[in-house]
């Protein structure tokens, strides 16, 4: 099978995920992604004509909870692991637009 993932696919995916790959690391991710797709491609050998797509492994349905407020953690807890914060907010590099 011809490689599906090319340099331009990686560029596009990287942009969507706000990651950047250059030089060697780009070549490596192209290879990895193609390997993964090649592995999954094996499944296409099966005839799945007429078999509905499986979205959930478990047959459980309606796992719902009542509308009750349970406040488990505080703002302090929430901000604890943030790389950058002040006493109220998470701080992130400036992002403008949508």
């Amino acid at each position: 099978m011809a490689p599906v993932i090319t340099e331009s696919t990686v560029d596009k995916l990287a942009h969507l995920a706000r990651l950047s790959f250059e030089g060697e690391s780009k070549q490596k991710i192209i290879k990895d992604l193609n390997n993964i797709l090649g592995f999954v491609e094996k499944l296409n050998e099966l005839d799945t004509e007429g078999v509905p797509a499986l979205t959930h492994i478990s047959s459980e349905i309606n796992n719902l909870r009542e509308d009750k407020v349970i406040q488990n953690i505080t703002r302090e807890d929430a901000l604890k692991n943030a790389p950058k914060k002040d006493s109220f907010y998470f701080r992130v590099p400036k992002v403008i637009g949508e």
């Binding site: 950058k84 109220f88 907010y89 998470f90 701080r91 590099p93 400036k94």
Partner: peptide
Amino acid sequence: QDPEDSLVDL
């Protein structure tokens, strides 16, 4: 609110 950072409230 800040010249460098965006502030996030969840």
